[in-house]
Design a protein around this nucleic acid. Sequence first.
DNA 1: TTTCCCTGCTTACCT
DNA 2: ACAGGTAAGCAGGGAAAT
Length: 583
Amino acid sequence: AENEVLQTKADSDDETIREFGGHVSKTNPDFVLTFDGNSVHWPYLVKRADKTKTPLRVGRDGGPPHQSLYGHYSLIGRANVDLLNFADDLYAVKNKTIEDVAKYLGIELSSQNPIDETAYFEHWSNLNQRKNLVKHVEEQTKAILKIGQEAIDYVIQMSALSGLPPDQVIAAAVGFRVDNYLMMETHNLGQLIPSRMEQPIIPYKGAIVLEPKIGLHDNVASLDFSSMYPSLMIKYNISPDTLITGRETDDIFEVPEVRHRFRNHPSGFYRIVLTKLIEARKTTKAELKRTAPSDPRYTLLKAREKAIKVMTNAVYGYAGWAGARWYSKEVAESAAALGRETINRAISIAKSLGLTVFYGDTDSLFVNHDEKLVQKFQGEIDRQLGLEINLTEVYKRILFTEAKKKYAGLKTDGQIDVVGLEAVRGDWSNLARDVQNTVLRMVLEDAKPDRAATYVKGLAADLRSRMLPLSAYVIWKTLTKPVAAYEVNAPHVEAAKKMAKEGWSVTAGDKVGFVITKKTGKLYQKAEPHYKVSTDDIDYDYYVNNQIIPAAARILEVLGLTENQLIAEPGSQARLSGRSERG
DNA sequence: TTTCCCTGCTTACCT
DNA sequence: ACAGGTAAGCAGGGAAAT
């Protein structure tokens, strides 16, 4: 039956593998979906099939999977899609678990308490608990299918655009998707494809980030240039094949600041492909407007539009990537310089119209939302710069911290946008994130810190009696290299070492969950793998002083409160001296 | 001997 | 393993304070 979860009663590897192959042949799917299959399930199955000398018949040819490009396994005649690769494109999902990805995509899961990998063995060993483990895996299997249904249109559209097969395109890094897309277009133009060359990495100056106007501001609009870098590259014909290296002076454009020169005519390669991409996106958007959301083509068009957008936005970065076939430092550097000129001129225009600029980053500006002035501003950007700037959001109230790239705004629909702050960082505890989100809502709604300060003080005073689940205290950090390669001690590395000692395979790219315990010594000596900790072991002082207070203070300091004011009841010196050391 | 301050390593975020 | 710009915590070491 469709969407049926198959379970085997086989009790040996060879029997299980044989049965699995039989089911694949019988079902004969076009797509095979896994979650982390390229790193875990396929290599494992291949190894066990080898060891037991059992044929792993999963391809349409009845053959085994083959290791392919981009760290991916391919099945002959089927598209083997590893949905973890799709999840990597979902920036908002911090910890790429099946459960978190499903939740983000709005997929309902019937089980609320998934079993952590580290508890699998224990569940398997205990016959009563084994049932729960089987149930859990069944739930995950169903979730993977649903995630696949959400991903499939995007995968197919990205494949159609880039020319890479659907199973490869999602495994391929962004640079290789662009590379392949450009190769396709070169072919369409009847031109030759340059070979990839070893290039030294030469850094260059990038975008401008403005100093934010610290504090709470009411009625603020955010505006964004639409496709700023692509638009500038098209406008000034910035491309490797239009770059002038000789003495030409006729019909040329010199980029401000960096002084690279480009021919105005004929159109260069990047102008041609970027124009094509932008036109394709416009066409798709127009078609979407004519299509009812219930129409099956609607999701397909949405996916196509997203794929085109992703590709368009990646071209500038690609041009500055030393591994690109069409690498040109001059091109990337010129686009960046033109971007800086653009934002600077936009700031001048805004100010000349009487608008206040609160903040800006690369291609965005935050100004007071005076509707008439903002419209006039957009008109002037079009007239003076020949570029489009869109009103993307209106905030009833917005808070800028002293730091760049960290702010939060209350939108007109009551939702809060949080940018860069601890609340959106995956390497802070859920506890700290929840506290900061709560503080932000209180502050943005009240426009004063009192309610939030009382809340934080209350929580800090009796954290342990709140009996929060352990998951509130777990901190997740990525291991970016093998544990032995680290130069300095760090809590997540120490926790990883402890896991390795117990036989867990911890490798670069893994997320390590740890909890700070009451043990003595440096912080890294207090860190324990999350699954080994009980709530009795938690160092509550650390979580108050180094998680809750800093996360709350980041916001409340903007309104004049200090960290100390959040810890101490007025006049209580005892608590002040009771703080644990910070760094 | 303890505290303070600076620097480098490290991770994650923003556009 | 698309780009550069930015914040921030912790470790470690030496200088300054006790």
